[in-house]
Each structure stands twice: as structure tokens, then as C-alpha cells.
Design a protein around this nucleic acid. Structure first.
Lengths: 210, 210
DNA sequence: TGTACATCAGTGAACGCGCGTTCACTGATGTAC
DNA sequence: TGTACATCAGTGAACGCGCGTTCACTGATGTAC
């Protein structure tokens, strides 16, 4: 994607360089992976000199961390929309949430790679980590609701359940649903695989009314 | 890791350059990620001129694909050893296999990253892909054995089961067990999380004798 | 056992290239009065 | 409404650097006889 078009003349100031650099980064990451993104090329793609990005980001890693943070925020929005307050009942809403996980990996491979495979140290970048936890929070909330609908005697810990479903979704997404060349072939839609897995898991918990 | 030591004099020929380059690549990948590995630095680390690697690998990507292939082969060995022909019974052997998955991610972060996150197009590199399928084959075999031990009427498809367990293991390993800085904190051992998940899943399948 | 020769696996110098980063600068924008 | 000025967001030239790759070369090794 090119922010600054061909014929359209722009003045001395870009007007929206920060956003244009993010867009360029996403474009580069999705075609070459997180490692193959350079500050210089992002600048070029935004139609700006190589020195200009330094007005907006301290360095390459700062930009990358910002992309990852935005990715998690977008991810959280998508998950929240899919959950839709657990309507009409928690179980189908949870399945929608799983689908949304895969959709995201497929539709936004660049964000996905920046979030999970850029090798950013989790420890630094506090807001990147906060955004990540917010996304997980949606899933946790969904599991709380599912657990609350179960008979009190057999309720499993919602945190464990959330971690299991996150792991399963993440595994399916990373191996079979990602929107880049590292996706493995699968003899069925990834959505079906995940949905069946979640169903069986919930059966194992006794979470499905028989 | 340095292949060619300090005091020890070596002659004009290295003797084992191919292996030394692989070792250097693993070292670099584990400290900087698959993107941060360069041909030149691998050569330097092996104590050899920058032109020497070209005698052994066509280019950077060929070396990387070779690392990934070796990774999958080692992975397959570890998984097979953990499975140990399903002794004493398939269920505990399957749990050992899950543990081995996590152990590998933890102990061999460089191989793990090269295998799953180097962005190597699956389509090219036929032997890399074959090695990957061989590793999955171990898991599939284990699931066949577990399924065979179930009453005939309720047997699930072993392929589906293998894909589910692979996904769950991969998710847990990638998010919580990997031996690098991208590992997320977890309030319990990753092994326990995975083991509980597999147990619940098997319960859902009715694979555990009650 | 010795010698001639082919082959192999290195060297080191050179090349063009793109990156990251700094610097003094300059054009555009906003605001005080 | 106009003007002076501060601030901001760009420029473009320059730097040092490391990478990938090629090239003619050379030292070491193996083998035929």
C-alpha cells in the first residue's frame, strides 16, 4: 500500500506520516516477515526522505512495538465484537470467538506476525504487553460466562479453561490459518478443526448440556 | 558456540565447516531470531573467510532450510523416544509425547524458530517439508494407538485427534514454553497446562476409561 | 615408496548496495498582538 | 486583517558499516602409476 500517490502533489509536510509509516511497515512485514522490514524502506514507501521517520519514532524497534500494540488492540476489538456479550448464549458465542481468532490470523498476517513472531522481548514495551493482556481478557471473560452457566459442583477454573482455548486457537491459527506462506495445508477448513476441538474440550469439562 | 577455538591451530582446511556453519546459525538464531542471522557472521564465527560458506551452501536461505530440516528430524527423534512404542499403555505415552514437544521448544529455541517462524515458504524445500511431516507422523501414530484402544463404537478419527493435539501442544509451546524472550509468563508449569488440556480433551472423546 | 597430477576447500581483495543515523538546513504552519 | 516570530516536520548530503557475492588465486589432500 502506498500512502502518497503518484500524481497527487503534496507539500513540504506529509500530514500523516506516522500513520503512513505504520501502513508501510504492515505492507513490508506481510511480504517479507518482521525481520525483513527496514526503516529506510518504510520511509521510501511513504514517499519521504530516510531521515523523516526519526521525527516520529525513536528507532526501528519502537515502530515495530507500536505495530504490535496496535495489532493487539485491533485483535481485542475483533474478539470483543465476536463475543458480542455472549449472545444468545455463551457456548455459541465462544465458538464465534474462536473463529474470530482464525479470521484475524488470516486477514491480518502482518499484525499477527508482529504480535507473535517479531521476537520483541515481552518484558520491555509495557503498553505492548498491556494490549496483549487486554486481548486475552476478552477470552477470559467469555470463559467466565461459560463457567457460570455450568452447575456449581462441576465448575472448572475459568483461567485454566481460557489458557487451554487460547493455546488451541493459537496453535490452529499459527499452523493452519495464517495468511502467509508458512501456512500448512489442511484437509479441512481450519475453522472446522478448531470448532470441533473446542466442542470436544467442553464435553470433557462437562460444559455442554447433554 | 565457537567451533574453531583460540589456541588450537587449524590448517588451511577447516575440516568440518558445514557443521560449524550450522552450529553458528543456531547460535545466531537463538540470540537474534531467524531474521538476525547472516551468512557473513556465521562465517566469522566459524573462523573462516566470508567467501568460504559458498562452498557448502548456495545461499543464506539454503542454509536456513537445512537448519529447519535438521530441526524437524531431531524433533521427530525426540518425539519417537518419548512415545517409546506406547509403553506401558498409549495414554501415558501420549502425555510423555506432549511433554517432549514442550521440552523441545524450551531446549532448542533456535531450531524451533527456524522450523516454525523463519517464514520459509512451505511449498519449496521438499525435504524440509518431508521432515516436518515425519515429525507429525509420530504424533499421528500415537493417536492411532490411543484410538485403537477405545471401544469400536465410539472411536473418533485419529487424524482429527492428532491435529487437535498438535495444535494444542504447539499453542502452549509457542506462547508459554519457548526458550526465548517471547515466552509469556504463566502461573503454572506449561507442562501441567498441556497435560490437563490433553486429559480434558481425551475425556471429551470418551478415550479415558472411567 | 615416490612422484605427478587432479580435485577440493579454503583465501583475500574487491565490488556495489542499502541501512541506520546525524547534521545543519528550510519550508510550512500556527499564534500573539 | 496583517505581521513577526516560534515551532514543527520535513530535506538532502554525508558518514561509517556490514552484507552478499564474485574472482583469480593457493594450500592441502587423495590417487594413479
Amino acid at each position: 500500500m502506498r500512502w502518497q500517490g503518484h500524481g497527487e502533489r503534496r507539500g513540504y509536510h506529509h500530514g500523516n506520516l506516522r500513520e503512513a509509516l505504520i501502513a508501510a511497515a504492515l505492507d513490508l512485514i506481510s511480504s517479507k516477515g518482521p525481520g525483513g522490514f527496514t526503516f529506510a524502506e518504510a520511509a521510501r514507501q511513504a514517499g519521504v526522505s530516510a531521515a523523516a521517520p526519526y521525527r516520529h519514532f525513536r528507532d526501528r524497534d519502537t515502530l515495530l512495538a507500536d505495530v504490535a500494540r496496535r495489532g493487539f488492540e485491533l485483535f481485542a476489538e475483533r474478539l470483543a465484537a465476536a463475543w458480542d456479550e455472549g449472545k444468545p448464549t455463551p457456548l455459541p458465542a465462544l465458538q464465534r470467538l474462536g473463529r474470530a481468532y482464525l479470521d484475524f490470523a488470516r486477514a491480518e498476517p502482518a499484525y499477527y506476525a508482529a504480535m507473535f513472531e517479531a521476537g520483541l522481548p515481552i518484558a520491555n514495551h509495557a503498553d505492548y504487553r498491556a494490549a496483549s493482556e487486554k486481548a486475552f481478557g476478552i477470552l477470559k471473560m467469555a470463559c467466565d460466562a461459560v463457567v457460570a452457566a455450568m452447575p456449581q459442583a462441576t465448575r472448572p477454573p475459568a483461567m485454566m479453561m481460557a489458557l487451554h482455548i487460547w493455546s488451541l486457537s493459537h496453535g490452529v491459527a499459527s499452523l493452519f490459518a495464517r495468511g502467509d506462506s508458512a501456512r500448512r495445508p489442511l484437509p479441512m477448513p481450519a475453522e472446522d478443526l478448531l470448532e470441533a476441538g473446542v466442542m470436544i474440550y467442553l464435553d470433557g469439562l462437562g460444559a455442554r448440556p447433554e
